[in-house]
């Protein structure tokens, strides 16, 4: 899992109501970043594949993506955001250096993965993802 050399990368978890959205965006971000083994994972939907948000899937993905340099979580909306916030506020389920990033899911994921793959730290990854809000399309 670890990158060439021993440099730890920031892990990225994409939390969506939909399993397909989360996993597809994760694949797309890794592909656009040109890093097939980028530490990005989707945590979408319920364990049975239905729509919703699962604390269990989020926690599992966060630990799986944690290489020791922190984990950035991006969420779509509503319960996805609230579940991550509740996990961060309440307890010890998530890795110690986990952080909810205020960013649009798709654009933010691409920016975050590119930055993480390039060796950026958690602060840089979060800043890149948040900056995605300013990419105007018109």
């Amino acid at each position: 899992m670890a990158a060439e050399g021993s440099k730890k990368r920031v892990g990225i978890v994409l939390v969506s109501h939909s399993k397909e959205v989360a996993e597809s965006v994760a694949r797309m971000a890794a592909a656009l970043a040109g890093v097939p083994d980028a530490p990005v994972a989707g945590a979408g939907g319920l364990p049975d594949g239905g729509l919703g948000t699962s604390e269990e899937l989020i926690t599992e993905a966060a630990h799986r993506m944690d290489e020791g340099a922190g984990v950035a979580l991006l969420a779509d909306l509503g319960s996805a955001v609230l579940t991550v916030k509740a996990l961060l506020a309440e307890g010890d389920e998530l890795p110690a250096a986990a952080r909810l990033v205020d960013a649009p899911l798709v654009e933010g994921a691409v920016a975050a993965v590119v930055t993480a793959a390039g060796g950026g730290d958690l602060e840089a990854v979060a800043a890149a993802a948040e900056e995605a809000y300013s990419y105007r399309k018109l």
Binding site: G52, T53, S54, E55, G78, S79, L82, T83, A86
Partner: peptide
């Protein structure tokens, strides 16, 4: 509740 509800009421009532 946080781990089983699956919607926004999970984290809200859980909290």
């Amino acid at each position: 509740l946080v781990s089983t509800v699956g919607g926004a009421s999970g984290p809200l009532y859980g909290t």
